[in-house]
Amino acid sequence: MKNVRLNALLAMGLIIVMILSLAAGKVWVSPAAWLGDDLSALIIMELRLPRTVLGAAIGAALGMAGATMQGYLRNPLADPGVFGVSASAALGAVTSLYFGYAVTAWLLPAFALAGAGIGMGLLALLAGRSGSLILFTLAGVILSSLAGSLTSLMISLAPTPFATTEIVTWLMGALTDRSWDDVQLAVPIIAAGMVFLFATGRSLDALTLGEDAARSMGVNISRLQWFAVLGVGLTVGASVAAAGIIGFVGLIVPHLVRPFAGHQPSAVLLPSALAGALLVVGADSIVRILPSVSELRLGIAMSLLGAPFFMALLFKMHRELS
């Protein structure tokens, strides 16, 4: 296995950031008080620990999904958020909120998973096989604007002001007030999705040489496509169901990882999962301790961070092309 040291370092960093994120918040709870049976132990066990665990799972899911999409599409700008997979998942979830289905705990995730799966499937169908950057980018743009406008339609037609508020706040993406129930629902699905994503590694490597070369070496492209669709659908669907849209993680993380892990697609997968978890847990801790009246939503914070990063990336590509 490549990058053992890098992965070990990232895992250690992740553990440290998770411990810090448990201690940090409106009140600082030092580790000594974590295992008692007073109020501060309750804060840690019932409020902060599920939030941190969920954050790590979602970060890992989005980081790995981004790395897989970039490898599969041979496109360094691919990301479940930018290309509309997250928006499709959100549309699914909003549909369930709109109809009030969300009272049954598993319906919103089921709708989100279906949305993400359909979104990723459409992308793969529209442009995945051609490997054409332009075709795929366009397909992604159209998918995300279609899902976005249907979501807006849902909001404007929402039956009650309550449903409207529920949809809008949920869309903004956050880990606030998540409980062990959310963890129990999301983590197994994310884990299953990550197994599919991880299994794409060698085939993604082969795709480095183009689809014909990969197939001539025995890579089963339609199996790879299914694994990518299932893996991205499960991880992104479960993430969006648990925390709304948290964009740009899948875009940023593989780029941050590549200078250390190398560009080989399979070598980027695991470090991207670890670094994604690190990023989301870290960012969530920061929005929690920022001295603002109401907590800054994590999804908004990530977009504020991610959009400039995306632009810088485009500038860099522009320079390399000219």
Binding site: G71, R74, R202, D205, A206, L207, T208, L209, G210, D212, A213, M217, G218, V219, G262, H263, Q264, P265
Partner: peptide
């Protein structure tokens, strides 16, 4: 067709996939 900036040894190694 070379899509990622990997080193030459890795590229040649892909030939061993079968």
């Amino acid at each position: 067709d070379i899509h990622w900036n990997v080193d030459v040894r890795t590229i040649v190694g892909l030939g061993r996939l079968p």
